[in-house]
Design a protein around this nucleic acid. Structure first.
Length: 211
DNA sequence: ATTAAGATTGGCT
DNA sequence: GCCAATCTTAATA
């Protein structure tokens, strides 16, 4: 199960295209467990794109007249940085979520990783999640579950995803007719835009698909 | 300084 | 389906 990192130019494509093409890619986490090293691998099956001029994006401020302006802040600074890095944030007082940063520095767009198909290191993932090993579908079917299963937290904010201990590698491509599209989940604003992409057949995607 | 909302999850009805 | 948990961030004063 090898695979190579994505090129810089990959992340400079339109972010929606980056999102679609990240389906099928592998997220690989190297962890130290006591004296041993462990490798956790998941295949990306669900993502959402967050764009400039998008009221739902953390990097945008919505003015009274409805216009959106970039809003750099300590939390979202990774999104304004180089592409191919991680933007990890903490929310609801208990969950982390991870994005892959796209576009050149200064342009804050990214792809939220929402669900993985667990492939390797499943026992460790289950332990990190606090669920029985056989409950495969509960391991990473949601942005908060995914980060918990892969031991991703704020320490990895800004991390270059072409290097250990957290890598994004090319996998087998998901054919366009196998990709489902819907509105994004859990948003107060702009939830209607078709910016969520998922593998239609996968039992590992998160739940409610509004649309 | 104060406060409201949040790219969620899990448990309960 | 509904709601509490939990606390940081960002907006408002």
């Amino acid at each position: 199960m090898s695979g190579r990192a994505f090129s810089r130019s990959f992340f400079l494509q339109p972010t929606v295209e980056v999102a679609r093409q990240l389906l099928g890619a592998l997220l690989v986490r190297r962890l130290r467990r006591g004296r041993r090293g462990v490798r956790l691998v998941g295949r990306i099956v669900e993502v959402e794109a967050y764009l400039q001029g998008d009221p739902a994006c953390h990097c945008v401020r919505v003015l009274k007249d409805g216009t959106c302006v970039p809003r750099p802040s300590p939390r979202n600074r990774s999104m304004f940085g180089p592409p191919g890095r991680a933007y990890v944030y903490f929310t609801y007082g208990m969950h982390h979520a991870m994005n892959v940063v796209a576009q050149k520095p200064g342009t804050a767009e990214g792809v939220l990783l929402r669900a993985l198909e667990p492939l390797e290191g499943i026992e460790v993932m289950a332990e990190l999640r606090g669920v029985p090993v056989h409950r495969l579908r509960q391991l990473a079917s949601g942005p908060g579950k995914l980060t918990q299963a892969m031991a991703i937290d704020l320490d990895l904010d800004g991390h270059d995803l072409s290097k250990p201990p957290l890598m994004l590698l090319q996998g087998r491509r998901v054919e366009p007719d196998r990709i489902g599209v819907s509105g994004r989940i859990g948003l107060a604003k702009a939830g209607d835009r078709p910016l969520r992409f998922f593998e239609k057949d996968s039992p590992f995607v998160s739940r409610k698909t509004k649309s």
